[in-house]
């Protein structure tokens, strides 16, 4: 390639990154432990990335996710348009971690202590991401449990104070005890979309809303 064409193409490359409206938005998946954040992140990655690799392991043991994990350049297609996002799966936010709770899940004391230390670091990191590094939030709740907790109220308040767009997902609608209305009542100021991340129910509406909120 001649030096001039090379220069021209590198300038146009630079310009296209400078002016592209398609810079991926970084979307943090937040919520309490065990809400189904990782299950959702994995489903989004599986549906929209070529290799469909999982973002991380899902588990009924709380604090399986102890590091914020990012999946880059997830391109979601909606109505002929492409929405480019990076998804960040975060550890569930809590104000307390008691390592003896892990002992109930058949874990050795050493492992439980290490797991709780990693969990606390992970939550601290997730708070940091929320203040500095995300452009939008998907807040995942287990619709079979009471949404009206201090952590949820506090987290939604923190997200609102940062003026971040937030989409609330009422997950686990496949469970009999699920109540989406209870979540709508707890956070009437935000839109709530119901979903089963595990079974893939209503994911189409979730992708519509992701495109609408974060596109």
């Amino acid at each position: 390639m001649g030096i001039l064409t090379e220069l021209k193409s590198s300038i146009s490359r630079a310009a296209s990154t400078l002016f592209s409206a398609e810079d991926p938005k970084r979307i943090g998946i937040y919520g309490p432990p065990n809400a189904g954040k990782t299950t959702l992140a994995n489903r989004i990655a599986r549906d929209w990335t070529e290799h469909g690799d999982a973002v991380g392991p899902e588990s009924e043991i709380p604090h399986e996710t102890r590091r914020a994990r990012r999946k880059e350049n997830v391109e979601i297609e909606r109505n002929g348009k492409t929405v480019d996002i990076d998804i960040v799966d975060t550890p569930g936010v809590t104000t307390k971690v008691d390592y003896t709770e892990f002992l109930e899940h058949d874990m050795e004391e050493d492992d439980a202590v290490r797991r709780s230390r990693e969990a606390t670091e992970g939550v601290a990191e997730a708070m940091h991401w929320l203040r500095e590094d995300v452009d939008g939030v998907i807040y995942v709740l287990d619709s079979a449990t009471d949404p009206f907790t201090q952590v949820n109220t506090m987290l939604i308040g923190i997200i609102e104070s940062q003026d971040l767009p937030v989409l609330i997902l009422a997950n686990k609608i496949d469970l009999e005890e699920s109540s989406v209305q209870r979540i709508r009542n707890a956070f009437p100021q935000h839109e709530t979309v119901q979903v089963s991340a595990l079974e893939g129910d209503n994911m189409d509406e979730v992708y519509d809303k992701i495109a609408e909120y974060f596109g």
Partner: peptide, 27 residues
Amino acid sequence: PDEESRLIEVTMTEISPDEFNGIEIET
């Protein structure tokens, strides 16, 4: 809200087994 966010973060860094399990907070 910003102070609450930092309170959670600092609480996490101070939790240590058999000594401090964290906080309960209600507003």
